[in-house]
Design a protein around this nucleic acid. Structure first.
Lengths: 271, 271
DNA sequence: GACTGCGTTCCGTCGAGCGCAACAGATTCT
DNA sequence: AGAATCTGTTGCGCTCGACGGAACGCAGTC
């Protein structure tokens, strides 16, 4: 696959902002571009979309109509603007259910939740924020799992620290924006935060106490793939009064063990 | 726009599962077909996908490569099979965030969660299962919202009953599969379940105690759009020991009030 | 080592998707 | 009220982009 698409004499490209254009099948590319635009704007009209993509109205309409037939977009009224539809949600359900990370981790998460009595989360890195893939609640009955999409700050959570600790310098710089302060305990100094990451890398786990929210304590450990890369993070979190300092040590041990077990299932340290 | 798409002579479709061949832009249609196949199978190779769509290998490859460029699919290894990717999750996050149902309901959900101290959910009907759109946790810190997709049985949950109560006979038959038993309290008799639905319709709310899981109690009420159709369901759920019979009455009142308030915001019983 | 499967790439052809232009409602401006 | 101008929507020819065929490179397997 060539990333470069050379169009020697194609002068017609409206020159606006290509933004989303990846290479591939043109019409599909454009259709997916529409989805991304809608994800960004929340709601757009056909004309608007056409401008954004640099194509003719009718083209945009045909694409959006096709997306609509598959329920990936829907229009507000019979002759109105378009937005993302429920089809996306069904696909997302299938996605988390099948991501083998989640599938492999599920039983171990359950066990960990049972052992600690606290909530277990699995998170991955997604463009300068953490994306939660799975959750198993500690004790309360039927806390359904599988949620998505919330942007979680990376520098104020144990999961975030672990995920960042797996990056090299250039990627780290890119992923790390400004270090917003959520509580007096949030680490906001860049140098100090790098020290923290070094510590996380060294000891193989991260802890966050009152850093995102007063009264919230979390412990996280890295999940690695067959190549040893940090692909996800597994955490145990709960109210600080249930996770006092002298209990953190034990929880750390459990989380690290669980994360290592998942890593093994993903092929890490393969015989 | 016609909802009916009848292609009587489409003989090329391998006869297996026709998927959703809606009319539109061919290549986009096929690409989205790939997403749906992957959602169903969880993981497929290029050749497999090509057979399923009735196209040539190379065509399927180009389509899947385009999807991959947008992160909607990813391959297991460098030269392996394909599965749905995280791009879907990002889109899903944007979807729920923008659905005006969720947006309108959010503040009311919060209030309801605060009033009851229990977890509040918003669910919609999605092809013979319930789809959770939003969640607000009762008390615990940092319960992020926005999850999706898990297939929740309709007949063993308060949300499911409410959603089913909004259907007419033919749709109900279609949506209702076999009534699996989850606990001794699950309603499995068809006649008995219809009686239950009648009761739900009449009283305007549904209750489920120990029907999906022992120790889990839930109460739900319908959310209606401007036409009065039941478009979603709002529920409060928690451990049965915190929601004893004598407290259910109060919770019912709160849930119904909240659901009516959301319905009003959606235009129901306008002015 | 031949064979058979896979995902991937290149290439010439042809039909599918494109832009154009016209249509039909809604809204706004005069 | 009427016109001007938005909007989304639809036929229609032309052309370029997507398609299928075939070949390639790599892994297992007999």
């Amino acid at each position: 696959m060539s990333d470069v698409v050379e169009l020697p004499d194609e002068g017609a490209t409206t020159g606006l902002s290509p933004a989303v254009t990846g290479a591939g099948v043109q019409s599909v590319d454009r259709a997916l571009g529409i989805l991304e635009v809608l994800a960004r704007t929340g709601e757009s009209g056909v004309t608007e979309l056409a401008v954004e993509l640099g194509v003719h109205k009718s083209t945009a309409f045909r694409l959006v109509a096709t997306l609509e037939a598959h329920r990936l977009v829907e229009q507000t009224s019979d002759r109105g603007r378009y937005r993302l539809g429920m089809g996306i949600l069904r696909l997302a359900g299938a996605t988390t259910a099948r991501l083998d990370l989640v599938q492999e981790a599920r039983p171990i998460s359950r066990q960990l939740a049972a052992d600690t009595g606290e909530t277990v989360n699995i998170a991955v890195l997604a463009e300068s924020s953490a994306l939660y893939l799975d959750q198993v609640a500690g004790s309360s009955a039927l806390q359904p799992h599988n949620w998505v999409g919330q942007h979680i700050p990376l520098h104020a959570t144990s999961n975030g620290k672990v995920l960042l600790s797996g990056l090299d310098e250039p990627d780290l710089d890119a992923a790390l924006g400004k270090l917003a302060s959520y509580t007096p305990h949030t680490i906001t100094g860049r140098a100090k935060f790098r020290d923290e990451l070094a510590r996380v890398r060294e000891q193989g786990y991260a802890v966050a106490v009152d850093e995102l929210e007063i009264g919230l304590t979390a412990v996280a450990a890295p999940i690695r793939n067959a190549h040893g890369d940090v692909v996800a993070s597994m955490s145990v979190s709960g109210p600080s009064f249930r996770l006092p300092e002298d209990r953190v040590g034990e929880v750390v041990r459990l989380v690290v063990t669980a994360a290592v077990e998942v890593s093994h299932r993903l092929g890490w340290g393969h015989r």
